[in-house]
Design a protein around this nucleic acid. Structure first.
Lengths: 244, 244
DNA sequence: GAGGCCCATGACACTCAGTGCAGCCCACGT
DNA sequence: ACGTGGGCTGCACTGAGTGTCATGGGCCTC
């Protein structure tokens, strides 16, 4: 870390100044009504310097995603064979949440911007896509050799990202109040229950839980403990068979 | 259909001419090396007309996605309560495959373009995102009221899209030879097995697939159709009880 | 301390995507 | 024949993004 921080430490204040100026104007008049010239004249720097720090106007809205993506890549590259792959990509996704949670008000402002500016939404998609690819590549490695390994990797990566974003967005919609961690844990737990520790192509199963409705020609096997209350058994059967 | 085709029938040949000219140049010199002026001068039309038919230069690469998205929305809006939701979104995804399969060589050429031009990749992501949103909105409706309904909807939509794209891309990488249908069916079958027909928060179960092993003192209830083949019933029992 | 070097910045000019506007032409109906 | 409306064109303009060169200040070396 020290070498990296030494290499790119001493963050140029100009970068922060540009971000600050940009967001002031974006919130005042909107993203598309603000030109790069407006930003640089408010920040008191030359127009060329803007594009030195941000390859495009959109990039100024996501100033920290590049770093976060690098962090995630590093996290996944440090191969910790101890944990289960699905668990590990869920942990990687939590890194992104951490970045958002570091700066709740900034994240909420950015969320409102991206929600209503199509160009920014498209840009955000490409960022999210890179996270998803990082997770999928990791899983592809871990699943190498298994049947349908890359398919499983892609699907799980997409599910993790979708679950993460679902929780993140609902937190952002609530103006960043409270702790987003619990909601994300819940959402990712869902994914882990669905995909976790499954070695073969078969999905996981609830401990006893409610069974799905059955088609007329299904074979349904209901397994429960001998001391299960009878009403429970009946309800399970109703659930499974009744509502076809 | 007749009203729609009457409304926008008589496809202007200019649109096709622009697409053809654009792709000729894109394949010759590359996307970024081709300006809109190049395209319109090759097509022999005015520059302004290009932007009448395509809101942006990227749009000419995906000339039929708008129609396909409308088809998918219509397909999902025609509420067919007969089929299971997951099954239905999988069928909706197959509509997209159908569009790609209509024109294999065109699809392959486009795939090669989008693979290497970041701007086109970003555009494609925003298109795919709209498909995914359509699926997710449909599932949110169907899951309304259930616990974690929107979470499940988002995750399943993402999984369906990821599986579809996984199969589609491998078909495109093989130069569009053979039938992509089987691979997509296989990939979507995976998703259906994972998520299909699960009502509660618990993970899914295969349509018939392997049930968990039962403890010695479990009660096992077996429900099957009168005409279910015996070997099938026996196998289910073995699966459920045998491997404790 | 003087000269020289490196690098960050700034100023300018240029390309190209995308838009608004005004005119034009052709096909159609009266 | 004459107006009219819609599709097409050319033109001018904005704004993002890039290449290039000059400047100027900090730092190292002699």
């Amino acid at each position: 870390m020290s070498s990296r921080s030494a290499a790119q430490a001493a963050k140029p204040p100009m970068r922060e100044a540009l971000v600050a100026a940009a967001f002031r104007l974006f919130l005042e008049r909107g993203y598309e009504q603000t030109t790069v010239d407006d930003i640089v004249s408010l920040a008191g720097v030359g127009r060329r310097s803007f594009f030195r720090y941000f390859p495009s106007k959109e990039d100024v809205v996501f100033p920290d995603h590049e770093r976060c993506l690098a962090d995630m890549t590093a996290f996944l590259a440090a191969r910790d064979r101890e944990h289960e792959p699905v668990r590990r990509v869920c942990d990687a996704a939590r890194l992104v949440l951490g970045m958002y949670a570091e700066n709740p008000s900034f994240s909420v402002q950015r969320y409102r911007l991206t929600k209503q500016v199509p160009g920014l939404r498209a840009y955000e998609l490409s960022v999210v896509w890179r996270y998803e690819r990082a997770l999928a590549e990791y899983l592809r490695d871990r699943f190498a050799g298994r049947p349908d390994g890359t398919l499983r990797a892609d699907v799980i990566a997409a599910a993790v990202v979708a679950a993460h974003n679902n929780a993140l967005r609902s937190w952002l919609r609530s103006d960043g109040l409270g702790d987003p961690g619990a909601a994300v844990d819940h959402a990712l737990g869902h994914v882990q229950n669905t995909f976790g520790r499954a070695a073969g192509p078969g999905p996981a199963r609830p401990p006893i839980g409610p069974l799905p409705a059955a088609d007329a020609d299904d074979v349904v096997v209901l397994v429960c403990r001998r001391d299960a209350p009878l009403w429970r058994v009946v309800r399970e059967l109703e659930e499974a068979v009744g509502r076809a």
